[in-house]
Design a protein around this nucleic acid. Sequence first.
DNA 1: GCGACGATCATCT
DNA 2: GATGATCGTCGCG
Length: 206
Amino acid sequence: MLNLPLSDALEQKYYQSDDVVGIARDLIGRTIYSRADGLLTAGIIVETEAYRGPEDRGSHAFGGLRTARNEMMYAGGGSIYMYICYGIHDMLNIVTGVEGSSHAILIRAIQPVIGIDIMELRRASPARSANRLGSGPGLVAKVLGLGKKDNGRALDGELIWVGADKIRVDDGDIVAAPRIGLNIPEPFLSIPWRFYLKGNASVSRK
DNA sequence: GCGACGATCATCT
DNA sequence: GATGATCGTCGCG
C-alpha cells in the first residue's frame, strides 16, 4: 500500500467564521479524508452548497427550527451534520459558525484520490469511471463510508477531516450557481450558493 | 444524450 | 399523510 503524505486537519478555528458562503467556496480544492471502517479514503472537494442558518429558506434550520434531526447544526463549526434524504441517501454536511448559528455546507461531489478500490466496493452498482464515484451528495457519503451514525463527529483527524492543504484553484475556475433539488420560493431558489470547479469531471450532473 | 419515473423511509404536520 | 439538499434505470430514436 502506498504511503501517501496526508494533509493535517484544518484547525477548528477555520470553521468558526460566520461566513458560511465564503467557507463553502474556500473548501473547493481541499481534500476530505475518512477512516470509516478503518479504511482510508479521500477525495478533493469539487462541489459544495451553503445553507445559511435561520434566514435561508433552503436550510433545515430556517426560521430557527430546531428538531432532533437538525440539532447538530446548532453545535458550532467543526463537526459534521448527517441526515437521510429520500429515505435512501445519507448527506454529508460541514457545520460552520459559532455555537447556535446553525450554518452548514453540503458536500456535493468529490474527486477520488485515495482508496479508490474501497470506494468501488462501497458502490452498489459500478461507476462508469473513477471520477464519477463521488459525483453527487448521496455518493460522497457512500464512498467515504459515512452515514447517520456519524452525525456530530468532529472534523479532527480521527474519523474524518478536511486537510489544511489545498490544490491550486484560480478564482475564475470556481463557478457560483443556484443550488440543486430545492423546492422553495424566490429569492432563495436562485441564490448562487452552489460552488463547483469548472470543467471538473467529478462534479454532479445537473 | 436526455427526460421520466420509481425506490424507500425518516421526518415533520 | 405528505414530502424530500437523490440516484439508477428505462425508453427513446
